[in-house]
Amino acid sequence: MGSEKTSVVKGKLSNLLSYDFFAVLPTTLVFVVLLIVPLITEFAYAFSTLTEPFSLGSIIFVLNDPLYLWSFIRTVIYIIIDISIKFLVGLIAAVALRQVKGYKILWGIFLLPYAMPLVPALYVWYCLYHPAWGLINYVARTTGLTSTIINFLGDPSIALYSLIWAHAWRFTPLWMTILLAGLHGIPEEYYESAKIDGATPTRTFFRITLPLIKRYLLLNATLSLIWTSGEFVSIWVLTKGGPANSTHVLGSYAYWYMMAGGNFHVAAAALVCAFPLLLVLMAIFFRILGWR
């Protein structure tokens, strides 16, 4: 009896210390130490203040801060307009590109905004937008489109949209590629039989193309919404949250409380209070993926 038990334990132990165990050990450590521990730490910071170890003070502070609520709303505006631009321009580019001779080479060239590093790509738009010497204002004035100077990044009513455009511009080539890859996977016979049946191009698009790549597109779109909700770099490079705090989003709000304000508790509370948004988006993702 006794020896049987020890052999079972030994079997379990050798199972535990098997090759499989050591193969996933580093990954498990990375997950636990570098993702789960920070997550718990962040919650601990959110539910405390600079003076009290257990308190809802930080959470109450951000929820009562109009700037925080606006940052939250702007994040939602940001991700929705951003994905719309990426999708629409990407789709137009993908459909047009397939009609053009030598499209594989053009495809590669069109990837340039995405292939170049992010910060210089945003500097491109900083320079284009500049009120004094930017190319857009120069072209608009010399062609007589406008007589006034458009201050893209300095006017609180349009600064956010200027940011979104710069960000969407950089990622449109990726969406063009996602769409081209999706279109590429549709068998040519479908289109041939549609043509024989006399279907118009619009009808073919809505009845064949779209239904076939719908799930693939929705998954990619949801992923884009999730990741862009953490957007920070475009704000940091182009406006630093200004003018008049009109371009702060969740990521930049937390960053400025953390670095300039030196209050990690408020920064953590700002991020933790946005988790419901993430969870909703993730739920949509899993729904599309077909999970219960």
Binding site: V37, P38, F43, I226, G230, A268, M282
Partner: peptide, 18 residues
């Protein structure tokens, strides 16, 4: 899969404190 979906910005405070 959750780790893959999670946007890194939302962990900046906890990660920095760690």
């Amino acid at each position: 899969i959750f780790a893959y979906l999670f946007p890194s910005t939302f962990l900046i405070v906890g990660f920095t404190r760690l």
